[in-house]
Design a protein around this nucleic acid. Structure first.
Lengths: 147, 147
DNA sequence: CTTGACTCTGTACTATGGTACAGGGTGTAT
DNA sequence: ATACACCCTGTACCATAGTACAGAGTCAAG
């Protein structure tokens, strides 16, 4: 096929490292469609979409393992859309919680900056005060939501 | 002091592994306040607050290196306010960018969940299709925003 | 037919954030 | 005094997500 790409072309097109493509292959995330007699990997359109899917899902905060599950759900004809939906909903909850936490931290940082501007000696750090508390709510089910 | 804890008590109180406390010490994040003649580490209230700070900031997605910088913002009496202010502002920009990226992520997930409620078999699942749509958004200048 | 860009496999290395011993010493209760 | 929990240092190991070679083969242009 004329749309088939060698690994370097694929990597360039999607904007990843060649090594990364081969790394995904080791993880069974993305294999070559075929090989030239020389052993060169070839990737068709479907593989190109798959790689883009991986990068997009990664940008959304999914780990490679979670992405593998998503890709498996697509491949399996018995998998239900609801499974994917539940995964996305869980992810959304984590993300929303993290946004709230980060906004609180941003407020604390702004307050610290204000204190600095006032030239007050800040031996009592607002950041510390906002974060050293013990009453952390119980993790919203999953820390690491965005890592 | 009666409030000083040995490493095991500290770890239990804050809910981390003993090994983790010593790991933070290797990273110069959290040292013992003092030592018993036997070499046992002792931690005072301040160290306990510091460890909680580390765990809380970590839950917000900060790396240990970033946390070290945040802790340094506790203005040592010798640090000049301008230095502290610049660090805080850089951190604030970082946090704000993170919030924006996470909000974009949340919007994407909500839209995917909405689309998915059509409840089609997975081969036509809108989540996967919309992730596949290569609509590269332009990154806010910070990929890795959620890592 | 040689040069240079590209690819192959395989292995090692990086960073981050830990966890798991091994082989000792310490502290205290019975 | 001896059992037992606890602590010490040091090193090795784990997962995640790659990156960087080495040493070899391939392909196209000049």
């Amino acid at each position: 096929m004329t749309t088939d790409l060698k690994i370097g072309q694929l990597a360039k097109q999607v904007g990843v490292n060649i090594e990364t493509v081969r790394y995904y292959e080791r993880l069974n995330l993305l294999g070559p469609t075929s090989r030239l007699p020389s052993g060169y990997r070839l990737y068709n359109r479907e593989a190109q979409r798959r790689l883009r899917f991986i990068k997009n899902a990664q940008a959304l905060g999914f780990t490679l393992h979670e992405i593998e599950e998503l890709l498996d759900l697509r491949v399996s004809s018995t998998a239900r859309c609801g499974d994917v939906q539940r995964t996305a909903e869980a992810k959304l909850k984590h993300v929303e919680a993290k946004v709230r936490d980060l906004q609180a931290l941003a407020r604390a940082l702004r307050s610290l900056i204000r204190d600095c501007r006032a030239g007050q000696p800040t031996d009592r750090c607002p950041i510390l005060q906002s974060l050293e508390k013990n009453e952390r709510r119980e993790n919203h089910g999953n820390r690491n939501a965005t890592r």
